[in-house]
Design a protein around this nucleic acid. Structure first.
Lengths: 233, 233
DNA sequence: TCACAGGGATTGTTGAACAATACTTCAATA
DNA sequence: TATTGAAGTATTGTTCAACAATCCCTGTGA
């Protein structure tokens, strides 16, 4: 411990590394993962007793985790009946797109004030998606698409928007599990994603916004149709 | 009970009327109210034991309520240290305005597609504020201002945006308690609120958006200055 | 001044208990 | 047959008590 402590300041912030988390949060993370990747089907009931036994946590802790995920709209809590995996409908998809339009378009248009690496993050997501396509990894394409739109939202440089986008896209992915999802749903959008990214990198933010708006119209339309057309046996 | 049950379908949905709520939610509502109106000072610590005794609820139930409010950013939960009333800083105010700009400006610009009564709700909030001013009810002016901006967000007709706006404005009100808040902070904005409303009613949505953007710049600037200027003894 | 070792207070988590509510089953009735 | 009603069962809602883990304060010693 010499007097010069400069190197300490130069250390990268430990950040969340040592931010211990409560059991409830870890359980919530676990459940969130299972919900997003489809292991827990929409509408499925989560029994407090059975899940508690499975995860080796008490009912009280489990209920705290439920509150977390309920607030994220991934679970719905019906009083005296239990908690269920949310089952978004067509109206929910429409509403999610309303919010996405507001946030993502604003983010793209705010491009000139975007943080330094923000555009690069978008590009990274584009390549991540193209890499997944090259390997026929459809699951990976979906994940990359989520990362792509989170990165778009990140152009605002707003922690609150980032958090909202995270939730919104998680819920959207859940909605995706409701319908009979063709595995290559997102593949057609990869080229469009790249096109928008190129515009961003070139500084043509308004044009990029128009392109993105076009994407929203098409993707929403396709999703809603997938919801309403087949009565879903 | 005749065979024709048509009239049942015609009945208005009972909706939330009989949606009983859990104790945790009622406690959360109670705490939220106290936080918003300033009864619980920012930074104050909420002892599980004492609050539980005060409200006559168990620690477990209280903790569920804490999770709710933590997710709304009104409380911060520090592991093994307890929960505290959030104490937003200047960066938080800046971030809240980033999100408000994205949502409210998008809402105003979406005016043509707005639900029927939405614009009227904005007008009602304007008059609510003017009424409060006439009576020198400064608290009422603040409340009316919140209602006004919630109504602006309501132009999108999106439940998710509505919910987000609710949280955002509650948090903003909390930030307001941090600084030495002049009681008539919002009074100067009443006329501007009316001007924007008139533009909405006239269908000049883009002009209204420009006016609103101007409001954001001025209000944010004033708030941030109030935060950073006086070191706040 | 600093380091460090108690000791007290608070949170984190559990498990059990009981009340309240929902779901199921089945008999009774029209 | 279809509907009502009355048990009985399973699950959630909430409380309580207990204990471990952690923090915070304080005093001691160097």
């Amino acid at each position: 411990m010499t007097a010069t402590g400069d190197w300490i300041d130069d250390l990268p912030d430990a950040g969340d590394d040592l931010e211990r988390s409560s059991t409830a949060e870890r359980v919530a993370d676990l459940l969130r993962g299972h919900i997003i990747n489809g292991a827990l089907a929409p509408g499925a009931r989560l029994s407090e007793e059975r899940l508690g036994r499975k995860f080796r946590v008490s009912r009280n802790t489990l209920r705290e985790a439920f509150r977390l995920l309920g607030h994220e709209r991934l679970l719905v809590h019906e009083f005296n009946r239990g908690v269920f995996v949310a089952k978004p409908g067509a109206e929910d998809v429409v509403d999610m797109f309303r919010m996405r339009r507001a946030l993502e378009l604003a983010a793209v248009r705010s491009g000139p004030q975007a943080p330094a690496e923000a555009v690069g993050t978008v590009g990274a997501a584009v390549e991540q998606g193209e890499g997944a396509r090259a390997q026929g990894d459809w699951e990976g394409i979906g994940t990359a698409n989520m990362a792509y739109h989170r990165a778009i939202g990140g152009l605002l440089g707003s922690p609150r928007v980032d958090e909202t986008m995270r939730q919104l896209l998680a819920e959207l992915r859940l909605a995706f599990h409701v319908m009979a999802a063709p595995r290559d749903f997102y593949a057609p959008y990869l080229d469009r994603n790249r096109a928008i990214y190129e515009l961003l990198a070139a500084g043509s933010f308004d044009t990029a916004a128009e392109e993105l708006a076009g994407y929203f119209d098409i993707a929403e339309n396709q999703l809603v149709r997938a919801f309403t057309a087949p009565p879903r046996a």
